[in-house]
Design a binder for these strands. Structure first.
Length: 557
RNA sequence: UGGCCGAUGGUGUAAUGGUAACACAGGACAUUUUGGUUGUCUUAUUCAGGGUUCGAGUCCUUGUCGGCCAACCA
């Protein structure tokens, strides 16, 4: 018990350590975090990490987390995304204290801007975006002051109000902070605070034609909500100086920003821009395509919230660049599904086996455990008949040394049923094996085996008479290279052409009772989840992940 | 040729000046009516140089390498 507590304490990541320190020192009596998605796309595995961090922090320590949509750019944002984001967070197992929107604060933000102007710390600039860019300088050269920089506060106040009232066209003017055009930090070179966009906003409609920039919305929203720890990714680190400056000049609640490195997964992409292109250009079937690294895609693929949270916990939080092996994600879902998924037998690539000494027209019921890891899951019935299917790969005419499946003269156990002995096979004109002839061993039935025969191999099988055809979708990694961004050319050049294979599987009858979204282990084949494309006439299953497979690995050597 | 951030096994993360650890991946064996699971064992690590110190992955310094910063995106 003591060692367990110690371990837990030692596992604190650097942000948890900061929070713990702030709580212990009495700086705060409770902490407030926020998860701030922009509603312009679906949440992905990288967001999952941020969700676990922000919500996990206030679950572990005293406090709460707000969900705040960062909706300051009406052109790209949509309520469809708002709904999917809320759904995904809840599915992940977290609940927010308040559902908030940066757009809720547009009036307040406008007041803040007026305050800044009045203090001589912001001005209306009539420069074009090209002019602004030119005057900005470069990281090694200082910028130059805009010719509009020294307008009086009175003049600025009037112009800014006219901007708000729609007197000017898009892009004709901006409100800029008056800081220092020679500042070593480019973001401090009079950053733009407001721009003119005569665009319809998903929440405020046509009320506004000026919208605040990220830097003038995010920190101020944090402050309004008295967020104590504002956690974001590393690329915002240079923004922190501006974040602090604005809060300081406005004299408002001092939220503090902390940055951590975004998590990268190999063989996929997690940039919203790229994900959007995959969807729009039809490389996948929507944001929730099971190949997508989106939360909704992973859910449809069969990933559980538990496994994703476990993954986020295992990859941790740090400040260094990283490329996480997708194998770890797969490990996490296997570990979870192994405990909870019912076993079913489904033959994916069948060859017929005739049990020559079994009576014709007879169906004998066998019984098998639903889950050997959980005897509470009970047993199920499986019909056995004279004709069954097994996997083609489970029979070999000339077996290699370590092969212990079916081969002429060899015996295997049929899972939950009898031991069979292979006597013969039938080939077609092309020399392909079309039928395997076996005899079953009497008194070898599973659970009542008195033969004392020990066989090395156990195969899954399904009665040909009872086999139900189901559609099975086999997924592979979406990209054929680990890190698309380090390759030449367009990222879509590296899409794996074999990322989806659709086949017909032959399932035991018990699988027909599957509920939508339910996960199963298809014995010896992997974990599969029933897809929402299923209907009364056709069941569809998505392969979540294969089982660990030492045999294929060894056989390839 | 500016500034900021970073660098620990193949991957990810710990070690908070005092024995470099954990997980995944890899390898071996055992168990197994899933070549699954489980168990045991195992391979492999502090970017480089200099300094401070009884003692440095940790502090200082120089260098190297990587990331970020010049959107009216977030």
């Amino acid at each position: 018990m003591i060692t367990e507590e110690k371990k837990e304490e030692k596992n604190l990541n650097f942000i948890e350590e900061i929070v713990e320190g702030d709580l212990q020192s009495g700086k705060y009596t409770q902490i407030i975090t926020r998860f701030p998605p922009e509603p312009n796309g679906y949440l992905h595995i990288g967001h999952a990490s941020s969700i676990c961090l922000n919500f996990g922090l206030t679950k572990k320590f005293q406090g709460y987390t707000n969900l705040r949509f960062d909706d300051t750019n009406p052109v790209t944002e949509d309520t469809e995304y708002v709904e999917s984001i809320k759904n995904d967070i809840r599915w992940m197992g977290f609940e927010w204290e308040n559902e908030l929107y940066a757009s809720d604060y547009f009036d307040k933000l406008y007041e803040f801007a007026v305050t800044l102007i009045s203090k001589g710390l912001a001005y209306v600039d009539d420069s074009t975006s090209e002019e602004i860019a030119t005057l900005k300088g470069t990281p090694t050269e200082p910028g130059k002051d805009s010719p509009y920089r020294n307008r009086t506060a009175e003049e600025n106040l009037v112009l800014f109000e006219e901007m708000k009232n729609g007197a000017f066209p898009d892009g004709s003017r901006t409100l800029r902070a008056k800081i220092d055009m020679a500042h070593i930090n480019m973001l401090m070179r009079d950053p733009i605070l407001y721009r003119i966009k005569h665009a319809h906003h998903h929440r405020t409609g046509d009320k506004w034609c000026i919208y605040p920039m990220y830097d003038f919305a995010h920190g101020q929203s944090d402050s309004i909500e008295t967020v104590t720890h504002s956690i974001c990714t590393l690329e915002f680190a240079p923004h922190r100086e501006l974040y602090d400056w604005l809060i300081e000049q406005l004299g408002i609640y001092p939220s503090q920003q902390y940055e951590f490195a975004r998590r990268n997964l190999n063989y996929t992409v997690t940039s919203k821009r790229k994900l959007l292109r995959l969807v729009q250009e039809g490389h996948v079937n929507g944001w929730n395509d099971p190949r997508m690294p989106t939360i909704s895609g992973l859910r449809r693929r069969g990933y559980t919230p538990e496994s994703i949270r476990d993954f986020c916990e295992r990859i941790g939080v740090a400040r260094r660049e990283n490329m996480i092996d997708v194998g770890l994600l797969e490990f996490c879902v296997r570990e979870d599904l192994n405990k909870i998924a019912s076993r079913r037998m489904v033959v994916l690539d069948p060859v017929k086996v005739l049990i020559t000494n079994f009576p014709e027209g007879v169906t004998e019921m066998c019984h098998s455990e639903n889950n050997p890891e959980d005897m509470g899951a009970g047993m199920r019935e499986i019909p056995f008949t004279k004709e069954i299917f097994i996997e083609k790969e489970d029979f070999m005419e000339v077996p290699s040394k370590k092969y212990f499946r079916l081969a002429p003269g060899k015996m295997v156990r049929l899972k939950g049923a009898y031991i069979i002995l292979c006597n013969d096979m039938i080939k077609n004109e092309e020399g392909e094996i079309t039928e395997v002839h076996c005899s079953y061993v009497e008194n070898s039935k599973s659970g009542q085996d008195t033969t004392g025969i020990n066989v090395k191999g156990t195969l899954h099988w399904v009665s040909a008479l009872h086999a139900a055809e189901v559609e099975v979708r086999l997924y592979d990694r979406l990209f054929s290279v680990e890190d698309v961004s380090s390759e030449e050319g367009d990222f879509q050049d590296y899409i794996n052409p074999k990322s989806l294979e659709i086949i017909t599987g032959y399932a035991e009858p018990a699988l027909l009772e599957a509920k939508e979204g339910e996960s199963f282990q298809f014995l010896r084949k992997g974990y599969f989840a029933k897809d929402s494309d299923s209907n009364a006439a056709r069941l569809v299953f998505n392969r979540t992940v294969t089982l660990r497979d030492n045999w294929t690995k060894a056989a390839e050597k």
